[in-house]
């Protein structure tokens, strides 16, 4: 039998052994049987010394071919076995994907804060700066500088908490207007959110402590029309693009002309429902062009500058937007309430 035949025989018997090997161990046995130190192919190589020198390169070539052929078969089989093993493993690893999730227990922001962030986002986008002022405030800022002189009924104790004659708990965020104007940096575009206090007993719609967001714009050539446009944009951003606004004349000592603003009910779209008490409109804020007396008292020349101001009740927005029916819920901090936001 010549060498070539012998090698073919070895290759054939290797193929059969490899095919029979159904595990990595068996495959390794097969490898050792043919390619190991005592393997059949190795034996042949060892017997090369018996081959005539002129035939050696040719025989060597044949042996190497056989070797690489066997190696290739081994490799293919190994891959197949591994793939089958992985397949088998994954079959065992099937899970019930409908089992409950493992959640990170995240906390929740207060609905007031969510509403405030929404309002801040809108106005910061329009170039407004967020400013804060003190909650315990001088009567001077809360009243006098807002065109509410000493004997004005609005200073009456029935609405305002006083510490003494000159210091009180601010009843509105408007004093921040005066504080910012006094700094004299013009133009001004600011909003001032914060806590305010009024002497109201606690019930479903009242709280002695609540939040307002004050807005103020002072510049040359600011008009009432600008106020209308700005608040219309705001209402659309806050309550949806379909929202309409209605400006009704009103009175505030620190603005003239003044207005109250209603938005079309975002629940019924203005047709009238229980939410808007059938009117189709919901009152959301008060506003107006800054009174020249206020500008003057804060050191701004009303002949040169004009401006507008507005004040929004934060709780009012939160209650409306999230359909919360009782203001007391906002200050109880029951986790079952807070979790919903």
């Amino acid at each position: 039998m010549d060498m070539k035949e012998k090698l073919q025989q070895i290759a054939e018997s290797a193929r059969q052994s490899i095919e029979k090997a159904q595990s990595p161990e068996k495959l390794n046995d097969a490898r050792l049987m043919f390619l190991g130190k005592k393997g059949e192919l190795t034996q042949i190589l060892k017997s090369m010394k018996d081959v005539s020198p002129e035939d050696r390169p040719k025989v060597g070539q044949l042996v190497n071919d056989a070797r690489s052929h066997i190696e290739k078969m081994l490799e293919e089989s190994r891959k197949k076995l591994e793939a089958a093993a992985l397949e088998e493993k994954m079959k065992r690893e099937v899970i019930d994907v409908t089992l409950p999730a493992k959640k990170a227990k995240l906390g929740h922001r207060h609905p007031n804060t969510i509403a405030l962030e929404e309002v801040e986002r809108i106005f910061v986008g329009m170039g407004y700066e967020v400013v804060e002022g003190p909650e315990v405030e001088y009567a001077d800022y809360n009243f006098t500088k807002l065109n509410i002189p000493e004997d004005h009924p609005a200073r009456d104790e029935q609405d305002t908490f006083f510490i003494n004659d000159s210091i009180l708990l601010r009843s509105q965020t408007s004093p921040v207007q005066a504080r910012v104007m006094e700094q004299g940096k013009l133009p001004i575009r600011m909003i001032a959110p914060g806590r305010v206090f009024r002497s109201d007993e606690v019930d479903a719609t009242h709280s002695p402590s609540f939040h307002q967001i004050e807005g103020l714009v002072i510049d040359k050539n600011i008009t009432f029309a600008d106020l209308k446009g700005t608040l219309q944009e705001f209402a659309k951003e806050l309550f949806g693009p379909e929202t309409k606004t209605k400006f009704r004349p009103h009175h505030f000592p620190f603005t003239e002309p003044s207005a109250e603003v209603d938005v079309s009910c975002f629940k019924c779209g203005g047709k009238g429902c229980r939410f808007c008490k059938g009117s189709g409109w919901i009152e959301i804020l008060g506003c107006g062009t800054v009174h020249p007396n206020v500008l003057r008292m804060c050191g701004i020349d009303p002949e040169e500058y004009t401006g507008f101001a507005f004040g929004v009740g934060l709780e009012r927005i939160a209650l409306l937007k999230y359909e919360i029916d009782d203001m007391r819920l906002l200050y109880e901090n029951d986790i079952r309430f807070l979790k919903q936001f």
Binding site: G107, H110, N112, Y331, L338
Partner: peptide, 10 residues
């Protein structure tokens, strides 16, 4: 895991 509460200033 903390949720935000609000309480009165007085």
């Amino acid at each position: 895991g903390f949720s935000e509460g609000m309480t009165y200033s007085f």
